[in-house]
Every structure is written in structure tokens, then in C-alpha cells.
């Protein structure tokens, strides 16, 4: 088919399609690790933060307490970590009220926060984000390529490596803020049988991770078996 014919065919497409494709330039939302930091600071209401500094479409999140996701209840103790908080997020277009959030949410991940050291400032914080992979937004939220199902690192992520364990490909990476301060060590993987994506973030410098993040990953994996 010639170039001219293609251009002509495209001229006759359904106008409703054309309207939908008039999308503004967007920025991907922050990784759950960064979202978790924000959520910990602001507790309940996190509006617009997921797309901070974005000139494009803005999303925000409302949060409410939740005790389990997909039938999995997170334990009060996970290794050396104690459960500190559980939340379900409603990812909504900026401006949607809390009351309207359940109906407007494009995605509903859950977050489980654990602390060690009795929650003292120098203790470590472990955050586990869990989201279903059937709503299309999951790949944006967890930064996965929906076609290849491979993790896409963000601009502040470094040292990405893929590790195979227990039949899963776990993507490990470290996240850094622009000032160079190491913030989180993260791992993200898919549980295809359950249709879940799991992201685990451990705050703290290299000295806080003598065994790396993998022992935490395996503890969380056990919860879903």
C-alpha cells in the first residue's frame, strides 16, 4: 500500500478515536518508594504529589486504612520488622474528592509499612507496595513495560540488575535523590499466578543492609505462596 493511500485511510478513522488521542505530554508518576516517603509524611492525603513538578496530567492519591489485599493479610512481624501501617491508595485525577475517589480511581494499590528498631529515627523502614496487574494503570504505577513485562528504571534509579529466585525475576535497584543522598534499596517483581506486582523498598544507607534486600524479598514472597 502506498504512502498516499495510508494517509487517505487514516483520514477516514472514527472521529471519536481522534479525540481520545489528543493527549497532553505526561510524566510518569513517582515510583512507589518515593510515594511511600510522601505518604509517610502526609499520612492520609497525598494530592498531586505522584506527578510532582509535572507539566502534564496530574494524578493524586487518597489513602485509607486496609488490612489485606487479594486475601493476603500481612503479618504483624516480618523478620526483624514490625508492622507500622497499612493503607490502600486511590490513584485519582487531581481534584477528585475523597468521597468520589472509590468510583474515580484509575488504580488501587496497597502499601504495608514496617519499621525496625522500635520505630526510632535511626531504625529502618521497609515498605511493600502491592497492586493488581489487571487494571491497565498498573504498568505505569510500577514502571513496567506492559508489552515486555520488563521493569523500566527511573531517572534517579541506578545499578539495576535482574535476579532469578524462586521462579521469579526480581529487579533490584537503588534510588537516589538529586543531592546524592541514598534513599532506598528496592526490589520489584511479578506474581503472575495471582496477577500481582510487588514492590519492596528499604530505606537506609549501605551500612544498613549487611545482607542486601533479598532476604526481605523472600520473606514477602512466602506470604503469597
Amino acid at each position: 500500500m502506498t504512502e498516499h493511500a495510508i494517509l487517505e485511510v487514516m483520514d477516514h478513522l472514527d472521529p471519536a478515536l481522534i479525540e481520545q488521542a489528543d493527549v497532553k505530554k505526561v510524566r510518569k508518576p513517582s515510583r512507589p518508594a518515593r510515594v511511600a516517603v510522601i505518604a509517610a509524611c502526609m499520612c492520609l492525603l497525598v494530592v498531586g504529589a505522584a506527578f510532582a513538578a509535572s507539566a502534564g496530567m496530574r494524578y493524586g492519591m487518597w489513602a485509607r486504612a486496609v488490612s489485606e489485599i487479594d486475601g493476603v493479610k500481612f503479618p504483624k512481624q516480618l523478620g526483624e520488622f514490625s508492622l507500622a501501617g497499612t493503607r490502600e491508595f486511590y490513584v485519582v485525577p487531581d481534584g477528585v474528592s475523597f468521597d468520589d475517589a472509590p468510583l474515580s480511581a484509575v488504580y488501587r494499590p496497597a502499601e504495608f509499612s514496617y519499621v525496625s528498631g522500635g520505630g526510632l529515627p535511626d531504625g529502618r523502614r521497609l515498605t511493600v507496595d502491592v497492586g493488581k496487574t489487571d487494571p491497565a494503570y498498573w504498568s505505569v504505577y510500577f514502571s513496567f513495560d506492559p508489552e515486555t513485562l520488563e521493569f523500566i528504571p527511573g531517572e534517579n534509579d541506578r545499578d539495576l540488575r535482574a535476579v532469578e529466585t524462586r521462579g521469579r525475576t526480581v529487579y533490584l535497584y537503588d534510588s537516589e535523590y538529586p543531592d546524592g543522598e541514598l534513599v532506598t534499596h528496592s526490589a520489584v517483581w511479578l506474581e503472575p499466578e495471582r496477577g500481582l506486582c510487588i514492590s519492596l523498598s528499604l530505606q537506609g544507607g549501605p551500612e544498613a543492609l549487611p545482607d542486601g534486600v533479598m532476604p526481605c524479598v523472600e520473606l514477602v514472597m512466602d506470604l503469597f505462596r
Binding site: 485511510v9 477516514h12 478513522l13 472514527d14 478515536l17 481520545q20 488521542a21
Partner: peptide
């Protein structure tokens, strides 16, 4: 032309919104 365009439109409606948008962009 219209028949082919209608088929392409039908196909695009079966695609995920973000793929559809990328195709049209």
C-alpha cells in the same frame, strides 16, 4: 477507503487506550 478505515478503527477500539493513543499520535 472507508471500509478499510472502518476496520482500522474497529481494531484500534480493541487495543488498550495508551497503545491506541500512541498509534494515533
Amino acid at each position: 477507503y472507508r471500509e478499510l478505515a472502518a476496520a482500522v478503527s474497529r481494531f484500534l477500539w480493541t487495543e488498550r487506550p495508551e497503545i491506541r493513543a500512541a498509534f494515533l499520535r
